[in-house]
């Protein structure tokens, strides 16, 4: 629809306030009810858009976490077996084995609230009440040394509560390796000065040994 037509439509619909939202070009689908949108529209943004009313303390969060989360993520967010680690790893991002957690890596607190609320506990998603999610989020902040143990997180102080690694996210800089002018042949002859040598071989030959578990990083 052209901008002109669109503004003409807006003007028309403002004249006739009582008429339902106008139909699209194909007149397919129906208008969603407010209750339907509310049932599915659970996403939270860094600016706080989408946050429900509610609050919860670190202490309340610790209790819920122990009951519903610790069996996989560990009492202190250290992660049991290969379940995700949720706390620690500060100052590890430049090391050979970075530990990426809410405290060491995640840029925004809203992501914690949103993700726990939509996808956890694993296998029983979307079963938590808003106050429970606030409390668990407060506890995860405390496990990551972002807040003290007497902290209460609420809709009101949420956006003010920031994670330490926020400033370290940058824009995509690719392509960051050479590009040739269209139609140009890349190097075809003597592209390396010396005969090529093997510098390493596959560590995991049959793809499933236990030893590999210790040697390799995780998928993502």
């Amino acid at each position: 629809m052209s901008k002109f037509l669109k503004s003409a439509f807006v003007a028309l619909s403002m004249l006739a306030v009582a008429t339902p939202a106008m139909a699209g070009k194909f007149d397919l689908g129906r208008e969603a009810t407010a209750a339907e949108v509310a049932a599915w529209d659970i996403d939270i943004r860094p600016d706080g858009q989408g946050l429900p009313e509610g609050k919860g303390t670190v202490a309340q969060g610790e209790e819920i976490y122990a009951e519903k989360c610790a069996s996989c993520h560990g009492d202190f967010g250290e992660g049991i077996d290969r379940w995700p680690v949720l706390a620690g790893g500060q100052d590890s991002l430049k090391s050979e084995r970075p530990v990426k957690t809410i405290g060491s890596y995640w840029p925004y607190l809203s992501t914690v609230f949103d993700y726990v609320n939509r996808a956890m506990p694993f296998g029983e998603a979307q079963s938590l009440e808003p106050d429970e999610v606030y409390a668990i989020t407060a506890y995860l902040l405390n496990l990551n040394d972002v807040v003290d143990s007497d902290f209460e997180l609420s809709k009101q102080n949420f956006v003010k509560t920031r994670l330490p690694n926020e400033a370290n996210f940058i824009a995509d800089a690719r392509p960051d390796t050479p590009v040739v002018a269209k139609g140009t042949e890349p190097c075809m002859k003597d592209c390396k000065p010396d005969a090529v040598k093997i510098t390493g071989t596959a560590r995991v030959l049959d793809v499933t040994p236990d030893e590999a578990k210790k040697q390799t990083g995780s998928l993502d």
Partner: peptide, 21 residues
């Protein structure tokens, strides 16, 4: 939205500790 799959995951951590998103 900066959701989990574009912050915790699917961001590219560089040697200097910065991450491309």
């Amino acid at each position: 939205w900066h959701h989990r799959e574009e912050t915790s995951k699917y961001t590219d951590l560089l040697e200097n500790g910065k991450a491309r998103r």
